[in-house]
Simulated assay, not measured.
Amino acid sequence: MDTHAPHISPQQLSVADLRSFGERFGIDYHFSLPSAAHTDLPVLRGKVEELPLSSGLHLTHSSLDVLQPYETQSTRGTAIFLLIVLEGCVRLTLSGQQYVAEAGMAITTHLDKQSTLRATHAPNQHLRTLTVALDIRPAAQTKPVRQPEDFLALAKPSTQLWHVPGHLYQSLQHWQALQPTGALQQRLLLEGLALQLLAYGLDSKPAPRPPAISPGERKRLEAVRQRLDLAPDLDYSVNQLAAQAAMSTSSFRSKFRLLFGVPVLGYLRNQRLALARQYLLQGHSVQQAAHLSGYRYTTNFATAFRKHYGVSPNRLS
């Protein structure tokens, strides 16, 4: 969820790349180990496109594979900010309030020193988002056809999490299908969609809140997470972990993802790959690292490792 980003071609983005973007575009990036310790470690793979619109709005389209968990925090004021999640899931915190935005959902708000937006991005997902922003800084206004003052009466909207109407969501998917052909058609369609989304976002009903997690459930889920952290190489079943948490399997799946931002099996995979990476850096062979981290088949491990880290495990062994 990058609120201000340049156009970049599909590529792998490292910790160093994102920190550089953050300095230029008003975003603080925070990384979990091992990302923070290795500035050349790929965090994202994909592309981000920034499209200033003639209405004075700025639109950013991101299509990214999240390879490493990371967080962002806004550091720049935005009079109107609208985030639409087209694919994946983003956990957001604004003024101490938490929100979970999944595919087909959007959040409308404004950003300033008192209202900063933190976003948590879970790994092993394809994240596709669209942001529409009104930045009233003079540097951001490049000869708009309609002056941004038209929007000032709508500035500083209250924060709302809402569902994108079905017809608009389908139109956004259609716009995506047009790429990379018909640049003018894309821009005209996107400008119209951005204005429609803004209209809905400024007059929307809040989405239903996700089910609450009680303190007892939170404590039991944290115990499960710690168990996976301490011994990711062991065999687990979702039913077994749900029983430890004293929940039904369906409730355990949904509440684990809600609390930690990633499905339980995805979390286990992440821990196994992180453990395997440590073994590789210590000089173990690929086959040894796979076995010691809980993988039965080296080929499955190598495929998962390459997808997660963007490099072959042979590069580290």
Score class of each variant (00 low, 15 high):
residue 2 D to R: 04
residue 4 H to A: 15
residue 4 H to D: 08
residue 10 P to R: 10
residue 11 Q to F: 03
residue 11 Q to S: 14
residue 18 L to Y: 12
residue 18 L to R: 06
residue 22 G to D: 11
residue 27 I to E: 15
residue 31 F to M: 05
residue 37 A to W: 02
residue 37 A to F: 02
residue 39 T to A: 13
residue 41 L to T: 02
residue 46 G to E: 08
residue 51 L to Q: 06
residue 55 S to Q: 10
residue 56 G to T: 04
residue 61 H to C: 08
residue 61 H to L: 14
residue 62 S to K: 05
residue 67 L to C: 10
residue 68 Q to S: 09
residue 69 P to L: 09
residue 72 T to A: 04
residue 73 Q to A: 11
residue 74 S to W: 13
residue 74 S to E: 12
residue 75 T to M: 09
residue 76 R to K: 14
residue 76 R to N: 06
residue 78 T to C: 12
residue 79 A to V: 05
residue 82 L to H: 13
residue 83 L to E: 12
residue 93 T to S: 14
residue 94 L to H: 03
residue 98 Q to Y: 00
residue 100 V to T: 11
residue 103 A to Y: 09
residue 104 G to H: 05
residue 105 M to S: 12
residue 106 A to D: 08
residue 106 A to F: 11
residue 107 I to D: 02
residue 108 T to D: 05
residue 110 H to D: 14
residue 112 D to L: 15
residue 117 L to D: 03
residue 117 L to C: 10
residue 118 R to N: 12
residue 118 R to M: 08
residue 118 R to Y: 12
residue 123 P to G: 07
residue 124 N to T: 02
residue 124 N to L: 11
residue 125 Q to T: 05
residue 127 L to M: 12
residue 128 R to A: 15
residue 132 V to E: 07
residue 133 A to Q: 10
residue 136 I to F: 03
residue 136 I to Q: 09
residue 138 P to Q: 07
residue 138 P to E: 08
residue 140 A to Y: 00
residue 140 A to E: 12
residue 141 Q to N: 08
residue 143 K to V: 03
residue 145 V to M: 13
residue 146 R to Q: 14
residue 146 R to P: 00
residue 149 E to Q: 10
residue 151 F to H: 04
residue 156 K to R: 11
residue 159 T to W: 01
residue 163 H to T: 10
residue 168 L to I: 13
residue 169 Y to F: 13
residue 170 Q to S: 09
residue 170 Q to C: 01
residue 174 H to M: 03
residue 174 H to K: 05
residue 180 P to Y: 03
residue 181 T to L: 02
residue 182 G to L: 01
residue 184 L to N: 02
residue 184 L to W: 00
residue 186 Q to Y: 00
residue 194 A to L: 13
residue 194 A to P: 04
residue 197 L to Y: 12
residue 198 L to N: 11
residue 199 A to V: 04
residue 202 L to G: 07
residue 202 L to P: 06
residue 203 D to L: 07
residue 206 P to V: 05
residue 209 R to I: 07
residue 210 P to Q: 04
residue 213 I to A: 01
residue 214 S to T: 08
residue 215 P to L: 03
residue 226 Q to S: 06
residue 230 L to N: 09
residue 231 A to F: 09
residue 232 P to D: 06
residue 235 D to I: 09
residue 236 Y to F: 08
residue 249 T to N: 04
residue 252 F to G: 00
residue 255 K to Q: 10
residue 257 R to S: 01
residue 266 G to C: 03
residue 268 L to K: 14
residue 269 R to S: 07
residue 269 R to N: 06
residue 271 Q to I: 05
residue 273 L to D: 15
residue 273 L to G: 13
residue 280 L to Y: 02
residue 282 Q to Y: 10
residue 290 A to R: 09
residue 294 G to M: 13
residue 296 R to Y: 04
residue 298 T to V: 15
residue 302 A to W: 00
residue 304 A to R: 02
residue 306 R to G: 01
residue 306 R to Q: 11
residue 306 R to C: 07
residue 307 K to R: 11
residue 308 H to F: 11
residue 309 Y to H: 11
residue 309 Y to W: 14
residue 311 V to G: 02
